[in-house]
């Protein structure tokens, strides 16, 4: 028993030591999975963390959930892609100082033989209409993410209410949805960054429709309103926003490449 007590005591002491981390400041940011999964944050965050002696804690979830976490005041800054929801977030007083950061675009991907023939479509809405008409399998994110919100806008524009066995609501992130579409040989709407990361080894689906204005995918960053939540680290959040939208951050974003291709684009000033 004595030996056991001593062992337990030493475990406890060890735990206390392990847990005592340095007291550097932590900035909490909720963001969409695409910024994390694309690998951009791994190169974008370290220079800022070093300069300000802080850590940026990234909570990567869908855009809808990111904004909800921001509304509750559980993070200091949100970095998402759903312009309409972002504007509402600011208008409702939850966020201040929204800034454009970067953009890329959405693409409709599907099996190479393109059973619905959407490659010939003129607009994204028309492409979706053709998929619905053929009742070809379509995997929807179904998770209130930025991509899901864009998809719903497109169905509305197409005048189709997607329903039926062909329309699969996955309720999962972009990666799992691309995997599911690959396994089921169906169509889906994806952001170009995530698709690029999957292209080749992880999916044999091809881009079948792209390049329309309506598929524009802008990313914005917003500080959580300190008037709503007094505890948020507003000053550090503003420093981060200035960094991401300033020359240093913008250069890193513009130069970031995956498989030799750029993932995000910056606005020309």
């Amino acid at each position: 028993m004595k030996l056991m007590n001593r062992l337990l005591l030493s475990i406890t002491a060890l735990l206390v030591l392990c847990t005592a981390v340095s007291a550097e400041e932590r900035l909490k940011m909720s963001t969409t999975t695409s910024t994390q999964d694309s690998g951009l944050l791994k190169v974008l965050l370290p220079p800022f963390e070093q300069k300000n002696n802080c850590k940026v804690d990234v909570i990567a979830v869908g855009t809808g959930q990111s904004l909800k976490i921001g509304e509750a005041g559980d993070v200091d800054v949100v970095f998402v892609h759903a312009r309409k929801l972002e504007d509402k977030f600011v208008a409702d007083g939850f966020g201040v100082n929204r800034k454009d950061v970067m953009y890329n675009d959405f693409v409709v991907i599907g099996p190479k033989n393109d059973p619905a023939g959407i490659a010939k479509a003129k607009t994204a809405a028309e492409a979706l209409k053709m998929i619905a008409a053929k009742a070809s399998t379509f995997i929807s994110r179904g998770d209130k993410s930025g991509t899901h919100i864009k998809e719903k806008e497109l169905w509305q524009a197409a005048g189709v209410e997607p329903k039926g066995a062909w329309y699969v609501e996955a309720g999962q992130g972009m990666g799992p949805v691309i995997t599911m579409a690959t396994e089921r040989q169906g169509y889906t709407l994806a952001d170009r960054g995530t698709y690029n990361a999957f292209k080749g080894a992880k999916t044999d689906l091809a881009i079948l429709f792209q390049g329309e204005k309506g598929l524009f995918n802008p990313y914005g960053i917003i500080a959580v309103n300190p008037k709503k939540h007094a505890h948020v680290k507003y000053d550090l959040a503003m420093k981060f926003i200035d960094y991401v939208t300033g020359p240093e951050g913008q250069k890193i974003i513009a130069e970031y490449k995956q498989h030799g291709e750029p993932v995000f684009f910056i606005y020309k000033k």
Binding site: D37, A60, G175, A197, K202
Partner: peptide
């Protein structure tokens, strides 16, 4: 935990994330 890299990312959340990324 929120799966924060280097802070709250555990083996299991890392596995879930990597699976999500394919």
């Amino acid at each position: 935990g929120g799966n924060i890299r280097g802070y709250t990312r555990t083996m299991t959340t890392a596995i879930a994330m990597e699976t999500g990324k394919g």
